[in-house]
């Protein structure tokens, strides 16, 4: 057994153990911590599978940001009255059976795949030079399946509207508050020192994604984290959600992508087709708009519904 195989087996066992623990643990807070650890381990698994793009997304969005959302949800639930009775045994067994069914179905699909599995990877790489990109993952996301990326960037907006709709009647249009109970000392220092570095990393992840692992979602998540940090430390206040500039920023990414896509009908003969020789600058422009929109949307998702009555 080679050393790499031993590491892989250990990693797989660790992922399974943490997943089992996350399900078994009774406390919501502990389960969220388990989920974050599980996501970070999963990112390592993706690195071992030579998929650094997926690893970055898993670490930034899957583990980091989703973990943060779950953490704030569990904090809110702690203050809420637990009046609802726990689900009865029938519902619990039904949920368990459904989960097992889905897991078994997925496992069967993976095991029943023909060997070698059908793949579009060679075709994707073969046509990559025409896009001006060097990273095949970005090629798939921004060229071959740009419609998926468009829908992904749009779906953040209804999610954010869903969070905002939890606001009380009088608070609509106000600002969300996300602040540590006593933001001083170490947290302030961190929120002052880290954002300059984090902003560089976030922009780098997006800008560099044409040729290297990264992308708008990974970069956006890092930028969002920096904003959330500054909000937590009380260095900045969240803007009121009625602010026009904020809303323009939120839709900018999807709007730019849609505009380029529609222009593609006239200039390149198809929706979301790029005119020849202009694909790379167009893709970079789209990604830069996307990273801003994603960063703002993700940070506002964490910040929660507006609570401050507009003055």
């Amino acid at each position: 057994m080679t050393l790499a195989l031993a590491v892989d087996i250990g990693l797989a066992l660790l992922v399974l153990a943490v997943a089992g623990w996350t399900i078994a643990v009774r406390d919501t807070f502990a389960a969220v911590i388990g989920f974050v650890a599980y996501g970070l381990l999963l990112a390592l698994v993706w690195v071992r599978l030579a998929a650094p793009d997926v690893a970055l997304t898993e670490a930034a969005v899957g583990s980091g940001l989703t973990g943060l959302l779950l953490l704030s949800a569990s904090a809110r639930l702690r203050h809420a009255k637990t009046s609802a009775a726990p689900p009865g045994p029938v519902l619990q067994w039904a949920a368990g059976a459904l989960c097992i069914l889905i897991a078994a179905g997925l496992a069967a699909l993976v095991l029943l795949l023909p060997d070698p599995a059908p793949t579009l990877a060679p075709a994707a790489v073969a046509h990559l030079p025409a896009t001006g990109l060097g990273n095949p993952v970005t090629g798939v996301l921004m060229v071959y399946r740009a419609i998926d990326t468009f829908l992904e960037s749009v779906v953040l907006l209804p999610a954010l509207l869903g969070v905002w709709s939890l606001a009380s009647e009088g608070d609509w249009g106000g600002a969300p508050i996300l602040r540590h109970p006593r933001p001083d000392g170490a947290l302030t220092l961190m929120a002052q020192v880290l954002p300059p570095l984090g902003i560089i990393v976030g922009v780098y992840l997006c800008w560099n994604s044409a040729d290297h692992p990264g992308g708008a979602f990974q970069g956006g998540a890092v930028l969002a984290a920096m904003w959330v940090l500054a909000l937590l430390a009380g260095l900045v206040d969240a803007p009121p959600i009625r602010q026009r500039g904020l809303r323009v920023l939120l839709v900018a990414g999807a709007a730019v992508l849609l505009a380029v896509g529609l222009a593609g009908i006239g200039l390149a003969g198809a929706f979301l087709a790029y005119p020849e020789h202009y694909s790379k600058p167009l893709i970079l422009a789209i990604e830069m708009a996307l990273v801003l929109s994603i960063a703002v949307a993700l940070a506002l998702l964490v910040a929660g519904p507006p609570v401050r009555t507009p003055s």
Binding site: H180, R182, G185, A186, L187, L189, M190
Partner: peptide, 16 residues
Amino acid sequence: LMALFAATTISQLMAR
């Protein structure tokens, strides 16, 4: 250095 910085900050917050 980043890990040190993060760990220090978190430790401060948790200890407080």
